[in-house]
Design a protein around this nucleic acid. Sequence first.
DNA 1: TTGTGTTTTATTGCCTCC
DNA 2: GGAGGCAATAAAACACAA
Length: 276
Amino acid sequence: MDPARLIFDSSSSHRHHGQRMLLLGSGGVSPVFGGAISALAEGANKRRPFFTSPDEILEEEYYYDEQLPEKKRRLTPDQVHLLERSFEAENKLEPERKSELARKLGLQPRQVAVWFQNRRARWKTKQLEHDFDRLKSSYNSLLSDHDSLLKENDGLRSQVISLTEKLQSKAAALTAAAASVDDPASLGVPKKAEDRLSTGSGGSAVVNANQLVYSSEESCLPEGYHCMGPVDGLVHSEEDDASDGGCNYYSDGIFTAEHHHHQEEEDAQLGWWVWN
DNA sequence: TTGTGTTTTATTGCCTCC
DNA sequence: GGAGGCAATAAAACACAA
């Protein structure tokens, strides 16, 4: 009798309860024991069957003299193919299917069960790897988004700082200009403006406090941003309506609509600070 | 050829379910 | 308590570079 067959004949049920090893006499071979057996076998210059008890080694020398050692054998590609197809259909094995597969493949039911067990373990490992890759890629994507948002946030933050500084300096300058209105003689420039007005250059006067303050007409706001009122250089354009009280300048060094309105009143009283 | 890493087959012990 | 599943592990088989 084929020793492997002997073993597998007893292996159709689970080995836990001793049934499988009954035919082996002394309880089968643990991996550790297997190592000892291998060592003995090496000493005898013959490989032992994969399943052998120490008792057999001692008592059945005749057996090894006469039979080729039974090694752990790999399944043939055809067997594996059929098992794979069966596994794809259903990765759990009912007793009936196990017996049927074993019969078709010429294997012991226990071998089929073991193959499915190992196959499920491999599938689980692959699944874990796949899940890991998916999560990793998702994490990397989120990390990238987070980084770019941080950069964008930094950019916007520095823009805010820069614009705030600009507005503060403009506000300070406007305040100084407004103060000079109270005492025009203290400043040379308004006098110059007065001179221009007195020259009778015609039309409306174009000089205003803003022009005194700003040397540039460039907008201090970034592209895409706009003030709640006419903020361009704080100079009223031709289209601007002097009655527009809705212009709000920035706060915190920021002119409010009230301030603007107040200044218009002052301008009107002065008579020569004219919005055209 | 040989050392080494990987894959496959099988065992063992523990756990859960009925 | 028996049956089956799973994790951990052993060991043979296999792949491959040096």
